[in-house]
Amino acid sequence: MSIQTTILAIFAMALVTFIPRFAPLAFFNKPIESKYIRSFLHYIPFAVLGAMAFPGILFSVQDIRAALAGTCAAIILAFFNKGIMTVSVCAVVIVYAFGVLVK
């Protein structure tokens, strides 16, 4: 992608990131009535995160076995409510360690 196109894409991303944050703050003064629409909006982040995480995580690093090891570590740590930072950093360390140990 050329520099110009990339810059255009970045500003398009910035715009569609800003609009959902700004529009309700600017124009809505009362909550949405329909409980179905509200529930739909409520579940979106979890659906997005799920679809983004899997199977993407398995292909996020070159060796799929290392990715699998990192994924397991992340799942276990997340299950015990370790914070975002601990989970991310540990997953990276495990992937790196796997690469060093299993050659």
Partner: peptide, 11 residues
């Protein structure tokens, strides 16, 4: 893997 791990930490 870092950002993917973060998604797992949120889900």
């Amino acid at each position: 893997i870092a950002l993917y791990a973060m998604f797992i930490a949120l889900i």
